[in-house]
Design a protein around this nucleic acid. Structure first.
Lengths: 362, 362
DNA sequence: ATGAAAGCGCTAACAG
DNA sequence: CTGTTAGCGCTTTCAT
C-alpha cells in the first residue's frame, strides 16, 4: 500500500482535521453529521473539507457502521424490458429513501444467481430483491433468510420461504385470458413459455421451475378443463432459451404441426415476439389464421397490425412496492412475511379472432 | 454498534482463526488467498470457515486494499432498450474480468448525474462508464479525470476531456441516411430529437447539449446543404422529454404544420415511437404520406407494417469495448485517451418512399 | 462541545 | 511457513 506516499492519495478525515486544527473525532462528527459540534467549529471543518476537496469513503463508513446504504437486485435478464422497468422503479424508490442499488444479472441461471448473491452479501448490501431463476434450487435464498438479511422475491413466489413477495395474479390472469380465447370459439389452444425442459415436452407441473409460469399454466389448464377441452397439456410448449435459436425452432415446430393451434397464449413478450416473427415469416395472419395473446404490455405489441392483446402487468408498481417492503424491513420493521399480489389488466386489441373452422362453417 | 453482542453478528476472520487454532493473519491468508500457507493449515482453516459459514466482508477488504473490484455505470435512462443492452454488455464483460457493477440512472439530468458520481466515488469504484447528460456541464467529469480515476465516456464524446470514448459514427450515419431520403426525392426533411430547448426551436448547434445528437444533426444538415435544400434548420425539432406528453405535443405540432415534412429522421427509437403513434393516430401512412428512418434498431421497428428503416448501432459491442478499455486502465495501462468509433449499419426496410408530390406529378 | 483512544474486518509489513 | 503488529478511514465510546 503506497497510497500514503502516492501523489494522489485521497484526502481523509485526518487531513481535514489537521487543516481545521481540530481533533479527528470532531472533524469526523461534522463530516459524518452525527455528533454535537459548535457552529464555529463546524464551519471551520466544512471550509477545510471544501478546500481539500474531501470525499467521504463510504466503504470505511460501512465497515464501522455495518450498514452500506445499498440494496442488491438480482434479475433474470436486464435486456428484457420487463426487468428494465422493474430496475428503474426499484432504483427510483431506493434513491428516494436514500439507498443505492447494485445490479446483478443471473441470465436465468441458478449458478449465476448464487454467485451474484455471494458478491452482494460480500458487499454487505442492506437487503435484496431477487427474481429466483429456479424454484427447485433455493438453498442459497434460504441462507439469506436465515442470516436475517431482508429479502423480497420479485414476480416469483417460492413456497415455504419466509420472505416478502411481490407478484401478480398470474393464475387468474391466465385463466381469464384463456377463457376469452375459448369464448371466441377456440378449442385448440397452446401455451408457449421460455422454460427449458429435456426433452422439450410438458410432462407435469413439477417441470415448471419458475413459479409465475407455473401459476399461469395452472390457470391456462384450469380454463381448458373447465371448457371440456381434452388433453390441453399436449399443447404446452416449453420453448427453451438455453441455446440461441432454440426458441425459434420450438415455435416453428409448433406452427408446422399437423394440427396447429388456432390460438396461442404467450408467457412473456419475448417469446411472443418470436411467435409473431415466425408467423410473419410463414405468412400466417393474425387473427385470421391464429389468435395471439401475450403476457406483458411490451412496446412492440401496440404497433403491429393488428396490435396484440396483452395481459398488462404493473411492473413499475411492482418495483416500487418491492423496494418499499424491503426498505421498511431494513429500517427495522419485522412483520411476518407479506405476499403482495398486484392485479393485472387485460388489454384487448385486435389479435383475437374466431377460429377459421368456425368461420368456414358459417 | 451492538453487532458484537447481537445474536447474528457476522462471522469474521478472527472467528475462523480461533476455531482453526491459527493466528488471525494465517486465517486471513487462506481466506483471502494471498499468502503462503501449508496445505495442512489451509485445509483446517477452510474447514473452519465452512463450518462457521464464513462470508468475507468485501467492504473491509476494499478499505485496506484501496480497490473495490467494482465499476460504476451512469446511464441516461435504464428503461431505454439502448441502455438496457449496454448495461447488459458492460456487466457481462465486467464479470468476465472479475469486476462487479453498480448502476445509476441520471434520467438525463446533470444534477442527478453529479449526485450519482458522488455516490460512486464514495463507494470507491475502480472506474466509471458514463453517458454524459449535458456536454455544457462537465466540471464533475473533469474532477473525475483529475483524480485519476479511470473514466470512459459512452456514446457521447466530450471535447477537451482526456477520457476514453466509445461512440458510433453518428455524423456519417446521419449524413448517409439523410442522403438516402434525398435520393428518394425528398426535399422537405425533418430531424426530431428528444433534446430540450426553451423555446423549443432550433437556433444553433450550441443548443445541442448531447454530443452524439449534435453530430447527427451536423450530418443531417450537411446532407441537406449538399443537396441544395434551403433552410433545413427550420425543420429540426427539439421535441423535449422534460415533461410528460411534451414529446407527443411537439410531434403533433410538426405533423400538423401547414407544410409538414415528407420525411423524418428520428434521433432515437423512443422519439420514433412517438412519431409512429402520432402518425397512426391521425391516419398517416408510411411510406406514402411520410417516410421515416430512426436511429437504433429497436425491437418494434421490425414488426410494424411496413417495418421501419433504421441506423443500427452496435450497442452490445460498444458496451464490451467500453468495459474493456476501462478495465485495461484499471489494471494499470496508461495510454493517452482513446477514441473508439464503431460503425453503424443502415438497415433498409419499408419505410422510405417517394414523396407524394412527385408520385402525383408522374 | 471536544479530544483521546479503541474499535469495525480486513490486509500487509516484518520478524522469526 | 507462521505469528505479531500496524495500518486502511471511519465511527463510537468515554473522559474531560
Amino acid at each position: 500500500m503506497d497510497r500514503k506516499t502516492s501523489p494522489f492519495r485521497a484526502v481523509t478525515v485526518a487531513d481535514v482535521a489537521r487543516r481545521a486544527e481540530v481533533s479527528k473525532a470532531t472533524a469526523a462528527r461534522v463530516l459524518g453529521g452525527y455528533g454535537p459540534v459548535s457552529d464555529e467549529v463546524k464551519l471551520r471543518v466544512q471550509a477545510a473539507a471544501k478546500a481539500l476537496d474531501y470525499r467521504p469513503n463510504e466503504l470505511a463508513r460501512s465497515v464501522s457502521t455495518g450498514k452500506s446504504g445499498t440494496i442488491g437486485i438480482v434479475v433474470g435478464d436486464i435486456e428484457n424490458a420487463f426487468f428494465g422497468i422493474a430496475v428503474r422503479s426499484i432504483s427510483d424508490t431506493a434513491h428516494r429513501h436514500g439507498f443505492n442499488v447494485i445490479l446483478a444479472n443471473s441470465g436465468e441461471e441458478v449458478e449465476a444467481e448464487k454467485a451474484a448473491l455471494k458478491v452482494l452479501v460480500g458487499k454487505r448490501v442492506d437487503g435484496l430483491i431477487v427474481t429466483p431463476a429456479d424454484n427447485r434450487n433455493v438453498a442459497h435464498l434460504r441462507d439469506i433468510v436465515r442470516s436475517r438479511r431482508p429479502l423480497v422475491l420479485f414476480d416469483r413466489p417460492i413456497e415455504g420461504l419466509a420472505a416478502d413477495v411481490v407478484a401478480t395474479d398470474d393464475r387468474d390472469a391466465a385463466f381469464a385470458a384463456t377463457m376469452r380465447l375459448i369464448e371466441a370459439g377456440h378449442r385448440h389452444l397452446a401455451y408457449v413459455t421460455a422454460l427449458n425442459a429435456e426433452p422439450p415436452v410438458f410432462t407435469g407441473p413439477e417441470q415448471l421451475y419458475t413459479s409465475s409460469v407455473k401459476a399461469r399454466i395452472d390457470g391456462f389448464l384450469a380454463a381448458c378443463h373447465a371448457a371440456g377441452i381434452d388433453a390441453p397439456e399436449g399443447n404446452i410448449c416449453l420453448a427453451g432459451n438455453a441455446a440461441a435459436g432454440q426458441q425459434r425452432a420450438s415455435v416453428e415446430r409448433l406452427l408446422s404441426a399437423v394440427e396447429p393451434p388456432t390460438a396461442i397464449l404467450a408467457s412473456d413478450s419475448l417469446v411472443a415476439f418470436e411467435i409473431f416473427k415466425a408467423m410473419q415469416a410463414r405468412g400466417l395472419r393474425i387473427p385470421d389464421d391464429l389468435s395471439l395473446v401475450s403476457f406483458y404490455d411490451a412496446e412492440w405489441t401496440s404497433v403491429t397490425t393488428p396490435p396484440i392483446s396483452v395481459i398488462d402487468q404493473p411492473v413499475y408498481d411492482m418495483g416500487t412496492q418491492a423496494a418499499e417492503l424491503l426498505i421498511a424491513r431494513i429500517n427495522g420493521e419485522t412483520p411476518p412475511a407479506r405476499h403482495c399480489v398486484l392485479p393485472t389488466r387485460f388489454i384487448e386489441r385486435g389479435s383475437i379472432g374466431v377460429p377459421r373452422c368456425l368461420t368456414a362453417a358459417t
